[in-house]
Design a protein around this nucleic acid. Structure first.
Length: 101
DNA sequence: CGCGTGACGCCCA
DNA sequence: GTGGGCGCCACGC
């Protein structure tokens, strides 16, 4: 992965405010990536200096290997999860901002 | 270049 | 709600 893309993705993910969540597809779209898989690819190399736990799948379910971690961290931010799923329509991050309309 | 795999997303039955 | 298939790009062998 190019450092540029790597940096960009980190910026976007890091730009996700607490109490909200974003999907890989959203991050990928904002980063200009052709597929959401690239987002995960980057996060993998990143490390943990970013709120990766705010990135979940489009169905509102976090990664299986992070399920517990994600849910736990998000919980601390006020992002409740019904069982294992999170209400995107309720916590989905809006990159356009509430002042866009 | 081909094969297998992956922190994904959409479609169909 | 569940199970199976396809598309997409990148990494490692």
């Amino acid at each position: 992965m190019d450092e540029e893309t790597h940096e960009l993705v980190r910026e976007i993910v890091s730009g996700v405010p607490a109490g909200t969540v974003a999907t890989y597809g959203d991050v990928a779209a904002l980063a200009g990536l052709p597929n959401p898989r690239m987002v995960g690819q980057v996060l993998r190399e990143d490390g943990g200096d970013i709120p990766w736990h705010r990135i979940i799948r489009a169905d509102g379910v976090p990664a299986a290997h992070l399920r517990s971690e994600q849910l736990a961290r998000l919980r601390a931010e006020g992002v409740l999860a019904e069982g294992q799923r999170i209400s995107l329509t309720r916590y989905r991050w809006n990159p356009e901002g509430p002042g866009a309309g």
